[in-house]
Simulated scan of single mutants.
Amino acid sequence: MKEELKRLREYLMTGVSYMIPIVVIGGVLIAFSIMLSGVKAGQGAVVDNDFLKKLMQIGSDAFSLMVPVLAGFIAYGIADRPGIAPGLVAGVLANDVKAGFLGGIIGGLLAGYIARWIKSWKIPKSLRPIMPIFIIPLLTSITVGLLMLYVLGGPISALMTSMTGGLKSMSSGSAVLLALIMGAMIAFDMGGPVNKVAFMFGSAMIQENIFTVMGPVAVAICVPPLAMGIASLVAPKKYSKTEQEAGKGAIAMGLIGITEGAIPFAAGDPLRVIPSIMVGSSIGAAIAALLKVGDHAPHGGPIVLPVVDNPLGFIVSVLVGIAITVLMVNLLKKPVSATEEVEEDSEGM
């Protein structure tokens, strides 16, 4: 069992190592564009300059590759080259069904294991040359694609609808409880469907001139990337060299309110990272609710401070959320082994 879990982590880290440059390119360019443009009350991040728009487009297009690359190279780690193409297909479909990076992980694992299984088939010698370039990718892509569309897509859509209804029914109750739940939702899949439900609900409340719902959401948005970036600086021995580099980009993304900056850490170690960022984000959001922090822009992170009610309360909430996440995740994580570092170095050569 331990050996299987170790191999699973290796597959995830293979996907993460290839995904991180995509996250950095996309996140930093988007962050740079927003930082120079700023945010406006009621509108969020508005990029008007033509050059910054082009940078924003490059960053957004790069970001759209994040989940396919993650899924593709998870599958590659499992099945070698025949797994790459079906893994990429699974990642694109995860984007299409709005399944986020968690959907990408599921798709990548499915593609990898199915491709590896097909590789084990006993076939005539005459067909062997076309197995890795035709038969394995085609059969795997069809199988994984149908699973992603029919099995994953429907439940996610139904889940989003039910979660939105649940948040609406809670909006007239305890503000702190609502903030706790929304904070956890924001951190759970970092830009995925659960995150989007909470974000869109907070944004909708701005249209109703209720700003104290988006305030806690804006706090929760930036806690995961800022906390994971700081955690990798505070305890570098618990993070690979690739993750340490990703941590610097995560801090930059967190300042601009891009939760996806924490995805490389969550994808590589979901069982420790996701609970930690959920706890930190939910507590940070709850403190923001207690302090009546309001946000007039559908965006998050310190960049929204000019349009925030009670900016000091916002800063305190973010700092508490970061501190809790850093403490929790670094207590849970174990030091990176020398073997993992050697494998990572060999991949980069």
Results as ranks from 00 to 15, higher is better:
residue 157 S to R: 13
residue 157 S to A: 15
residue 159 L to Y: 11
residue 161 T to K: 15
residue 162 S to V: 06
residue 162 S to D: 11
residue 163 M to S: 04
residue 167 L to M: 14
residue 168 K to C: 00
residue 169 S to Q: 12
residue 170 M to K: 10
residue 170 M to C: 12
residue 171 S to L: 07
residue 173 G to S: 14
residue 173 G to W: 08
residue 174 S to N: 15
residue 175 A to F: 02
residue 175 A to C: 00
residue 176 V to I: 15
residue 177 L to P: 07
residue 177 L to S: 14
residue 177 L to A: 15
residue 178 L to I: 05
residue 178 L to G: 07
residue 178 L to E: 12
residue 180 L to H: 06
residue 180 L to I: 11
residue 180 L to M: 10
residue 181 I to R: 03
residue 181 I to T: 11
residue 183 G to I: 09
residue 183 G to A: 12
residue 183 G to T: 12
residue 184 A to N: 01
residue 184 A to V: 02
residue 184 A to F: 00
residue 185 M to L: 10
residue 187 A to Q: 05
residue 187 A to P: 12
residue 190 M to K: 00
residue 190 M to P: 00
residue 193 P to F: 01
residue 193 P to E: 01
residue 193 P to K: 03
residue 193 P to T: 04
residue 194 V to S: 01
residue 195 N to V: 02
residue 195 N to Q: 06
residue 197 V to M: 07
residue 198 A to V: 06
residue 200 M to D: 15
residue 202 G to E: 10
residue 202 G to R: 05
residue 204 A to W: 10
residue 204 A to I: 07
residue 205 M to Y: 05
residue 205 M to I: 04
residue 207 Q to V: 04
residue 207 Q to E: 15
residue 207 Q to L: 13
residue 208 E to M: 13
residue 208 E to A: 13
residue 208 E to P: 00
residue 208 E to F: 00
residue 210 I to K: 13
residue 211 F to T: 15
residue 211 F to Q: 02
residue 211 F to I: 09
residue 212 T to N: 14
residue 212 T to H: 12
residue 215 G to V: 06
residue 215 G to P: 08
residue 216 P to A: 06
residue 217 V to H: 03
residue 217 V to K: 08
residue 219 V to I: 14
residue 220 A to F: 05
residue 220 A to C: 05
residue 221 I to G: 04
residue 221 I to C: 10
residue 222 C to D: 08
residue 223 V to I: 14
residue 224 P to N: 02
residue 229 G to A: 09
residue 230 I to V: 15
residue 230 I to F: 12
residue 230 I to D: 06
residue 231 A to N: 05
residue 232 S to F: 08
residue 233 L to C: 07
residue 233 L to R: 12
